[in-house]
Amino acid sequence: MGKKRTVGFSRFSEVQTAWLFMAPGLVLLALFTFWPIIFSVPLAFTNYSVIGETSFVGLDNFKRALSDVDFIASIKNSLLYMIIVPFIQIISILMAILVNRNIAGIKFFRAAYYIPVVTSMVAVAIIWGWLMSSNGVLNYLLMSIGLLDEKINWLSDKDTALWALMFITLWKGLGYYMMIYLAGLQSVPNDCIEAAKIDGASNFQLITRITIPLLKPYVFLCTLISLMAAIRVFDEVFVLTSGGPGNTTLTSSVYIYQQGFEQFEFGYSSALGLIVSFIIMFFSIFIFLFNRKGGVNPY
């Protein structure tokens, strides 16, 4: 009986099957990815909060945002955070080149470098919070090798706090990008390298003339991922400084969270979210256009 069916068509046509397969995923995406974006638009024009009646307030939230010193500071800090992007690329490429060889124990080292990536930001924040306190190990080490004259309370000094957080973000992410670059390096055809070696290329030339150009699409991908991560940074700031001292480490994600879930000003928080979304969108479109020119595919 069943065997008589036309090959490829059971009870449903191919189109129906396709939509059936995608249904659960698309419903979830619609509900938790698209709906928040759509619904936060009308919300941004109201004074919706836990207390009082909700009413339409027009552009009040946006006017308030533009004169909100903390919000402006948080945007500045989020943009400043992007400084780590080039450092991430350089260090993780060097690490990838370092672990891209078949020597004894290399698997151990690769795993070791990846461990900060798999651990929770809460755990990492706790550890580095201790290491960076004024009587912490970091000060001790820096002072004993003579790089530092007096103790710095890295995370509560307003001059160093943001940089200290950036360092933690960088440290935790290196292994992740290293693995992507390593995948890239291993896709470099071996004949290419052998041929260059026969032609007498030095190690340095091998890296600058062959490895780096072939890594280009990976550099693009990693830049995109790390840029988005930097501009949205939340966890480490939330756990370690919650924006302080003052507003020196306040990032836009943290401020949006604070307005929403600590002040319960859902309307204002949504308006801030929209503004930040536009800023991020600007960067993404810029990168995607740049990408199209380069002709590489980030996914």
Partner: peptide
């Protein structure tokens, strides 16, 4: 969805 950030998504979710 890769372009649109979920910064404000928390409240609505």
């Amino acid at each position: 969805t890769m372009i649109i950030p979920a910064a404000a998504g928390l409240v609505v979710n």
